[in-house]
Design a protein around this nucleic acid. Structure first.
Lengths: 370, 370
DNA sequence: ATGAAAGCGCTAACAC
DNA sequence: GTGTTAGCGCTTTCAT
């Protein structure tokens, strides 16, 4: 009874159809099956046909694990985002995934929730699953966590900034572009007192957005008092808190630019609660242009950062790091542009002539118009 | 030069630290390393210590692919959702992922976008990656796609309905509960003419929600004319269209219950565009209670279906199908409850005495109050 | 053009 | 209690 026993069958599920079954059925060796499946040109067309038929009949699916084990490549990409529940990220995930799948990659997603421990375990898990590369789209990450990844000489993509190393590629978002358009739009309407609700300032991308705002303002000869730059945290709750602190000020701004759309939605909500009208009393501008933005009340004027562009750049940059024959293998920086989308949450400032005329004509209505 | 060559090094990245390196460093066999890593009790504590130290020093991470190959289990769970960009799903994904990771599983996510071809490729990819089980949380899926999965005798979880087979577990959402509360809440406020915007009716869960509404209405002796039940598609755009068709009717309802929150947000938007006030003219109720719901203008009254509960049930039901020694291995149906959350988008119907009193007192403000 | 065989990193049976 | 060893399913030499 001992010499005959071959397969111990201690596995939990019955073994699936394997390459050997196909080979037997097609009357060829497993090498030929492998070659056929991988589209190696030297296989006799006749044999290839037999193999494909056998595959069809048996419903064979190559075992990805085994393939990965022998090839050293998993064809999986890691995608790390800040918070999957921030609507911007699902949109990004969707685009990223579509592109990755089209290139034959699977995507492992993880959100850091801004927690270091969580991020660490995320990275360890992805490393262990042998992803071929990781895109860190958190718009900022703590430095020593970066180190963990960098040490592995492993294809990586960061947004905005990252160590200058051969395996690292950076997506350079041109915040200036869109934010300048936003500031100029507000200035053209007549706004002079424009506040800014930033993201969490330990994230470099949040700093970059704030700096772009300050720069655009000074280009127009406008300054922003310190108390008109409030730190938020890129959530609706943070937007509410920041807007409330702005409202409590003696000098209320006539417009507020937010570091992302969730913050802007929170600001809208805070204004609603305190019976301030948007855009009648205060104009609000967001950043990201999430799908939801156009459905806000009023529809949100916002700076669009295209998820599609971001995802395309991320996937291509990763592939450039992974695939030996990628055309842009040497490209380190991948540009992403931004632009303003004007909707209904911005208008002439309160008390100005155009605003009064508009108000009388009743053409533009903010919410809470009393 | 031929007899000596061992490692062909044709792989793309240098081979990582393997179990053999650890064994060598710790001066033990690879079996001992394996036992140590897997927490097998029979290992000598002294040796175990040496092994752990070696692991530490080398930064060894066990290769998940190899583990999966030999054990026949990948410790990956598939999670299929309808649309990752519908905010309900990221919340679900988040909860699901947290639970799965806590149990040592990784999650492969896919959204069908209601496309059959996409769903098919999704299923094939997950099968090929050898996930240990799949939770299909699309709230309805086409029957022959189900078949593809069912045939594989593979742990599966569906929502609401699915084939009665040993490997399949069903999450039974108690729609009646929350929807009855919603209808009774509206009826208590004095609403008699309540419309319903459904989801896409080819999805069984959408039908279940509509039926729960009709049943709750008839329990109160209320009927809903056919034209007051409009089919949406669980998107904001669909909610807008459905609400607009409702508005164009001769007999405008005083309240609208929606099959999900996105539909309700669309409805809010449509009402805003046509200068109808919420809740002054029309009360709106959503379903799901996504995080965003409380930040809508006005904050949305909605039926909460807890993501957490849903995720807990899904992960546990999957584990019951995967793990031989799971306590609830025989449980086929996993209940999930729903309940009403009252916010500001519902009020007394227009023209009724309480509404007039409220209006005069100015206590409750809807948007667009003119 | 095809097949035989080595071996990817690991687990588990078996021998000691 | 520990080591030796046989595969898991596949790709890729190497020999034919």
């Amino acid at each position: 009874m001992s010499a005959l026993r071959k397969k111990p069958q201690n596995r939990l599920r019955p073994a699936a159809i394997s390459i050997r079954d196909v080979a037997r059925r097609a009357g060829v060796s497993i090498a030929t099956v492998s070659r056929t499946v991988n589209g190696i040109a030297t296989v006799d067309p006749q044999l290839a046909l037999q193999v494909w038929r056998a595959i069809e009949e048996l419903g064979y699916l190559p075992n990805t694990q085994a393939r990965a084990l022998v090839s050293g490549r998993s064809r999986m990409l890691g995608l790390i985002v800040s918070e999957i529940t921030n609507p911007f990220f699902p949109e990004l995930v969707q685009e990223f995934e579509n592109l990755a799948v089209a290139q034959g990659y699977e995507v492992l997603i993880g959100s850091t929730n801004y927690e270091t421990a969580r991020t660490e375990s995320l990275i360890r898990r992805m490393l262990q699953r042998k992803v071929d590369g990781i895109a860190v789209m958190t718009f900022g990450i703590e430095e020593d966590l970066v180190q963990k990844l960098v040490d592995r000489e492993f294809p990586l993509v960061f947004v905005d900034a990252g160590p200058n190393l051969p395996n690292i590629r950076i997506l350079k978002v041109n915040y200036g572009e869109g934010i300048r358009q936003a500031v100029q739009h507000l200035a053209a309407l007549g706004h002079r007192s424009i506040a800014f609700i930033s993201g969490p300032l330990r994230l470099r991308s949040a700093v970059a957005r704030r700096d772009a705002f300050v720069k655009s303002m000074s280009e127009l000869g406008l300054t922003t008092p310190t108390q008109h730059i409030v730190e938020g945290d890129h959530t609706m709750e943070g937007g509410i808190a920041a807007m409330e602190s702005l409202i409590s000020l003696n000098e209320l701004p006539t417009a507020v630019l937010c570091s992302n759309d969730m913050t802007a939605i929170g600001a809208l909500h805070a204004l609603y609660k305190t019976t301030h009208g948007v855009p009648r009393d205060i104009s609000v501008v967001g950043f990201d242009d999430i799908h939801l933005a156009q459905f806000m009340l009023p529809p949100l004027t916002t700076v669009q950062m295209s998820c599609k562009d971001l995802a395309v750049a991320a996937v291509e940059a990763l592939r450039a790091g992974i695939e030996r024959d990628h055309p842009k293998i040497m490209q380190k920086e991948w540009p992403v542009s931004t632009r303003l989308v004007v909707r209904r949450s911005t208008a002439f400032p309160r008390g100005t002539l155009p605003a009064l005329v508009e108000g009388a004509a009743g053409k533009r209505r903010g919410i809470n118009a009393k």
